[in-house]
Amino acid sequence: MSSAPSTALPAGEGLVAPAPSFSLAELGDDFRRGIWQENGVFKQMLGLCPALAVTTTAVNGLAMGLATLAVMIASSSSVSLFRNLIPANVRIPAFIVMIATFVTVVDLSMNAFAHELHKTLGLFIPLIVVNCIVLGRADAFASKRPLARAIADSVGVGVGFTLALVALGGVRELLGFGSLFGLSIFGASYPPFLIFVLPPGAFIALGLMLAAANHYGATAAKKVGN
């Protein structure tokens, strides 16, 4: 993505006519921020209920992440489009109705066209409605930004959420069953390490991954500091 020409302005002078209200570089930032810097699961610790509950395998994590991503793009876009028409004091119920609508659309479509996956994820698809990452981005970002920026942000945060779920599901599947995306990695003789597939394993795996991420972050920060 090429960044828009950034003309260095002399101090004290502002743009006379702000033709586009955002630049491509801004869109890139909106997208990138959600991937890691403000990652919903690893940095903000939001949306942990689906992150912990459905990540028994990498495939489940991927499916749940993509379903959430689809809901986020649709809800952030419509929130941004209607942002000037919805009075501030009823915005939350209005956003929730929008989100619930898109979640039901995803739920019905998955049931019709990805039936097996729908059976596996089951209850957790409707629960995307209460994923606070979705409402959070709608209210904190999309309701105050133009459409393009709202979409860039929702794609970034949604992809970040998906990556987090795939990573967590991958670690649990690898340690639990010795496979990744259903393909055997450690061979048939690998004894299943069940704790990682069971609910406690979700907490343990997430905790270890957070510790690793924080350690890496702290080390990197120290290097920059020197």
């Binding site: 209607f82 028409l85 919805i86 009075p87 004091n89 009823v90 119920p93 209005a94 109705v97 929008m98 619930a100 609508t101 039901t104 659309v105 019905l108 479509s109 049931n111 019709a112 066209f113 039936h115």
Partner: peptide
């Protein structure tokens, strides 16, 4: 009031979308 109208409109649009999607997916499901 503007509040009522806004919420009402959002709900109507949501209901229409859901009705259409339900009609399209009922047979495949």
């Amino acid at each position: 009031s503007r509040m009522t109208l806004a919420l009402f409109t959002v709900c109507v649009i949501g209901a229409i979308i859901l009705a259409l999607v339900d009609r399209a997916t009922r047979a495949p499901i």
